[in-house]
């Protein structure tokens, strides 16, 4: 049986590179990981790619990752970027075909 420790990481105001603590956490096999965006004001392409990478890795290890305290500006970036795993992490669908 897995432990249910939840690790919380607070993203800095600019997410433009990998955060080593989160990478380490994934290695340690915690079952829950919460990423808090309350301070995050800007996310770069590198930041998005890193998020995608950790989400893929977490998924392969059955680690549940949740995002919280997303500002609309950042949430919109996720919506427009249409990265499957990020859309899943914010509870959305990955089938983004427009309809009207």
């Amino acid at each position: 049986m897995k432990a249910t420790h939840e690790q919380i990481f607070i993203i800095p105001d600019v997410l433009d590179k990998a955060i080593s603590e989160v990478d380490s956490c994934l290695v340690k096999n915690n079952s829950k990981l919460s990423i808090d965006f309350k301070n995050c004001q800007f996310i770069s392409v590198d930041g998005l790619e890193w998020l995608e990478e950790i989400l893929v890795r977490a998924d392969s290890k059955n680690i549940n990752v949740t995002f919280c305290n997303l500002k609309p500006e950042i949430y919109k970036v996720f919506k427009i970027a249409r990265v499957d795993v990020i859309l899943k992490a914010i509870g959305g669908q990955t089938d983004f075909a427009p309809f009207c």
Partner: peptide
């Protein structure tokens, strides 16, 4: 994909 990520980031 690269262009899409960039376009998302550009909105900020």
């Amino acid at each position: 994909r690269q262009a899409r990520l960039a376009s998302a980031v550009f909105t900020q």
